[in-house]
């Protein structure tokens, strides 16, 4: 119970900060929206390529991909708030309080996931305005939100771990450049990988980012949804998130050893 209360109090602290400067939340949506509208227009004919099995509207195909890109790129910077807390004495104050390391970690993951939900709903609304229609209805949207939250939590944990180990913003730049961009291209976010090189399709199957894209696209699709596949991918993503959150919480030990 205490851990839950601590997690709640620490999550609210971050939400208050975001609420006071909503510009940051909005800024993070501008780029994905630009991609959605630009790529949506640029690649309209992709759906006509023989063998493309992603439906008849590229905008509809693209939307879950863009949502996950937004979640991935945004969470790579999640460690920024730890870096700021460490530069001040805020982190040391929390670490000398009864708050558990788990609560310190999970609160930032929940906070980031909440931001992702808000941003996802904005992207979804714009896609609908742009003419996209998703047969999956409410269950589809719920899976999209869940997948986006899990993806956010897992990479936020990775970002937090990097922040704790390196104690600088520079580590996060590395993370966002070297990890997120390859993950994005090794996936079906922008393109049906059945039309890509065979090795890419096989590699993508091990990409957590791809798990989120596949599960949400399948769930948004409507008729004939492959629920076992959706559940399987979400399960993998949840396990991945749990492992990363645990590893990141362990990183507090290293931070303290060098304190």
């Amino acid at each position: 119970m205490t851990v839950l209360a601590h997690t709640g109090a620490l999550t609210l602290r971050q939400l208050r900060a975001a609420w006071r400067v909503p510009a940051f939340v909005v800024m993070n949506v501008v780029q994905p929206l630009t991609w959605l509208l630009l790529f949506g227009q640029l690649f309209t004919s992709v759906v006509d390529i023989p063998g493309f099995e992603g439906g008849s509207s590229y905008l509809e195909f693209l939307t879950p991909g863009i949502v996950m890109m937004m979640a991935l790129f945004g969470s790579a910077w999640a460690g920024t708030s730890y870096v700021q807390d460490m530069e001040r004495g805020v982190m040391d104050r929390f670490l000398t309080s009864p708050a558990s390391r788990g609560a310190l970690m999970v609160s930032t993951l929940v906070y980031q996931a909440v931001l992702t939900v808000v941003q996802t709903l904005i992207v979804l609304a714009v896609a609908l305005l742009g003419g996209a229609r998703f047969g999956g209805g409410a269950p589809g949207v719920l899976v999209l939100l869940l997948a986006a939250m899990l993806l956010t939590a897992s990479f936020s944990a990775l970002s937090n771990a990097a922040a704790l180990l390196a104690r600088s913003q520079n580590a996060l730049i590395g993370l966002s450049q070297l990890v997120t961009i390859p993950l994005m291209f090794l996936s079906s976010a922008l393109m049906d990988t059945r039309l890509s090189a065979g090795w890419l399709d096989r590699v993508a199957a091990f990409n957590p980012f791809e798990w989120a894209v596949v599960a949400s696209r399948e769930a948004l699709g409507g008729q004939g949804r492959d629920w076992p596949s959706i559940a399987g991918h979400l399960g993998l993503l949840a396990a991945f998130t749990a492992v990363l959150a645990w590893v990141a919480t362990r990183a507090f030990r290293t931070y303290q050893r060098s304190a």
Binding site: L10, R13, R88, G89, V90, D92, R93, T96, S97
Partner: peptide
């Protein structure tokens, strides 16, 4: 940790929160 209060050399208050919110959060954590 339950027995101590800690004022680091660097600022321990969160600049984004109000003074009252900083205090209430400390109370919650304890």
């Amino acid at each position: 940790r339950r027995a101590i209060g800690f004022v680091a050399q660097k600022q321990v208050s969160d600049p984004m929160d109000t003074g009252l919110e900083n205090l209430l959060l400390a109370g919650r954590l304890h």
